[in-house]
Amino acid sequence: MKDLRTITPDATKVNTGVKNPEKVAESLTQLLSGTYDLLIRTHEVHWNIEGPMFYSVHMLTEGQYGELFNATDVLAERIRALGQLAPIQPGGLVNPDAPKKDAAPATAEKMVEMLKDRHEALARLSHELVEIAEKAKDPVTADLATARSTVHEKAAWMLRSMIAH
């Protein structure tokens, strides 16, 4: 019998019919990382927005960061269901190419535009994941990626509408 104190997580082989679950999980990990990064940025905007757009952006981002937080768990659990490990280190969840904290504060319009751009990027990444999942005969991940794209496209539309000229 194994000593339960020494069990460590490891990738495992699954036999559910998914072809190349490693590649699917790798794409899911990219989506998870982007979602987590957007969760943090959405909080930053939520906390720091000022001006005439304050209330509407503050309320919109509150709903968005809640949804994003829930999505991170769904994405990570799908990676595990494919027999792969979800990111273990914080660096695997946060975008290392993100602007540094000493950057000058942005205007409300720039903050909203940044969130819109990131939602659009995650929608594109979700579309790519649908194709990868379908080629791997993984309808579960394809459905998950389609749902994520729906969320990101709607969020981008709402944000885009806020800064339309």
Rank of each mutant, 00 (worst) to 15 (best):
V140E: 15
K110Q: 15
N15F: 14
V130G: 11
T72I: 12
H43R: 11
A108G: 14
K137M: 07
H165C: 00
P21E: 09
V18M: 03
K2D: 05
Q89H: 14
V24A: 09
A81Y: 02
T61P: 01
M162L: 15
A106N: 06
L32S: 04
P52C: 02
T150Y: 00
L93E: 02
F54R: 12
A142S: 13
V14D: 00
D37V: 08
L75C: 06
P9M: 00
T12Y: 01
V94R: 09
T12W: 01
A11P: 11
K19W: 00
A108C: 12
S161C: 03
L38P: 13
D117Y: 04
A25V: 02
A142Q: 10
G17N: 05
K19N: 09
L115W: 12
V112I: 15
P99E: 13
D97F: 09
M111G: 06
N70Y: 07
E128D: 15
H58A: 06
D97Y: 13
Y65M: 12
T107C: 15
K116F: 13
D102P: 00
T72K: 13
G66E: 08
A98L: 10
P96S: 11
E113R: 13
I7V: 15
K137H: 13
G34H: 10
T150E: 05
G51C: 07
M59K: 11
V94G: 02
E26M: 13
H58P: 04
S33F: 00
E131A: 13
T8N: 03
H152S: 04
D138T: 05
S27A: 10
A98C: 04
A81R: 14
H46W: 13
K101G: 05
T16L: 02
E134M: 12
I79G: 01
A76W: 04
A106Y: 06
A108R: 14
M59A: 12
D102F: 10
T8P: 00
A86T: 11
E113P: 00
S27Q: 14
Y65G: 06
D37K: 03
A147G: 06
L68D: 04
K13H: 01
E109N: 07
S161G: 12
A81M: 10
L28I: 04
A98W: 11
T8S: 03
K101T: 05
M1V: 04
I79T: 03
L129T: 08
K137I: 07
G17S: 04
S161T: 02
P90M: 06
D143S: 08
Y36S: 08
T35N: 03
A71H: 00
K23A: 15
V94W: 11
E153L: 08
H119E: 05
F54D: 07
E134I: 12
L28M: 07
V18P: 11
A155S: 15
V18G: 03
D117F: 03
M53I: 07
V57I: 09
Q64C: 09
T35I: 03
R118W: 06
T150Q: 06
